[in-house]
Computed example of a mutant assay.
Amino acid sequence: MAVPCTGAVFDGPVKRYQSSDGFERGFCTECGSSLFFHPKGSDLHGIPFGLFDEQPDLPFKAEFFIDQKPACYSFSDETRNMTGEEFNMKFRSG
């Protein structure tokens, strides 16, 4: 689960890796923690929810790649659902 952030700035020991065509991920070079996923060419950074201390009220608004979710996943919150194709059209460059 990730929190979408725009305009994110990452200081410290951060390394970016191309994880797939058009996407990159960021990791801490000291501890190896996953810090974000980022569709290249966009301002979106998906930051793992677990990186935020004591933020129980962050809203659950969207599910991405809904067409690839396991059948057993079912969230009770009303969310905006985006297929992988819809996500790629909105956030991915070329």
Rank of each mutant, 00 (worst) to 15 (best):
G26T: 05
G94M: 04
T79Y: 11
G50L: 12
C31P: 03
A8M: 00
K61S: 08
Q18L: 15
Y17A: 07
A71V: 14
P48R: 15
T79L: 03
Q55L: 04
F87G: 00
G84D: 00
R80S: 15
E85L: 04
T79W: 01
N81I: 10
G22F: 01
V3M: 15
D11K: 13
P56T: 05
D67I: 03
F23H: 03
L58Y: 14
F37P: 03
S33A: 13
T6G: 08
I66Q: 14
R92L: 02
C28D: 11
D67W: 12
K15R: 15
K40M: 02
F64T: 01
D77T: 02
Q68E: 08
F23E: 03
S42P: 01
D53C: 09
E24D: 02
I47E: 05
F65L: 07
F64W: 02
F87W: 10
D11T: 14
D77K: 14
C72L: 11
S76C: 04
T79V: 09
N81Q: 15
F75Q: 09
E78A: 11
S34T: 07
D11F: 04
D11P: 00
C5F: 03
D11N: 12
H45N: 01
S76G: 09
L51G: 06
Y17M: 10
G7A: 02
L51R: 15
H45V: 00
G22L: 07
C31N: 03
D53Y: 11
S93R: 08
S20N: 10
G41W: 05
I66W: 05
V9N: 14
A2T: 13
N88D: 03
R16F: 09
E24W: 13
G41N: 03
P39N: 12
K15F: 09
S76N: 11
G46D: 05
F87M: 09
G41E: 00
G7E: 08
D11W: 11
A71D: 09
A62G: 10
K61Q: 15
M89I: 10
T83I: 03
P59T: 11
I66E: 00
P39Y: 04
G12I: 12
P48N: 04
Q18Y: 15
H38Y: 08
D53L: 15
Q68H: 10
Q55F: 12
H45Q: 10
P59A: 02
F91Q: 00
E86S: 14
F36R: 08
M82T: 06
Y73A: 03
P48Q: 08
